[in-house]
């Protein structure tokens, strides 16, 4: 199961890639595989303020719908509009082209509540 080294992760299987005070978020390989073929992504609105671990988006797969929670607090500054027509990008490339939103972070210390790649790998092992 692919886990990207310099990203951080939540127990709900979202990832965040932090670059200074901005970040990109998405869902992990584990999450996309568990969901199966993704058919719709409800993107957050640009300008929305989200709290850490608050619902910011949802994805639908063929058979089910599930909520996506923001790994950190901040303001949504960009969303991946490619997902509107091609939600399957998340299945194909969840860590790059399947990103969901970009955030302007306002509480960098929240990172301590997330797992780094090694911790997330260990966490995945406990789920099997």
């Amino acid at each position: 199961m692919e886990v990207v080294d310099h990203y951080f992760y939540t127990k709900e299987h979202e990832w965040i890639h932090i670059e200074d005070d901005q970040a990109t978020i998405g869902i992990s390989e584990y999450a996309q595989e568990a969901l199966g073929d993704i058919t719709f992504v409800e993107l957050p609105s640009v300008g929305t303020e989200v709290e850490q671990f608050e619902q910011c988006s949802s994805v639908e797969s063929v058979k089910a719908a599930s909520d996506i929670y923001s790994p950190m607090s901040g303001k949504i500054i960009e969303v991946n509009t490619d997902l509107e027509e091609k939600p399957e990008l998340i299945n194909k490339d969840c860590y790059e082209r399947g990103w969901i939103a970009k955030l302007e972070l306002n509480a960098l210390e929240e990172q301590s509540k997330l797992m780094n790649a090694e911790e997330y790998r260990n966490y995945l092992n406990t789920l099997e």
Partner: peptide, 10 residues
């Protein structure tokens, strides 16, 4: 019925 969008009934 058919949804008007990609969003699916459950």
């Amino acid at each position: 019925f058919i949804s008007e969008s990609r969003r699916s009934p459950r």
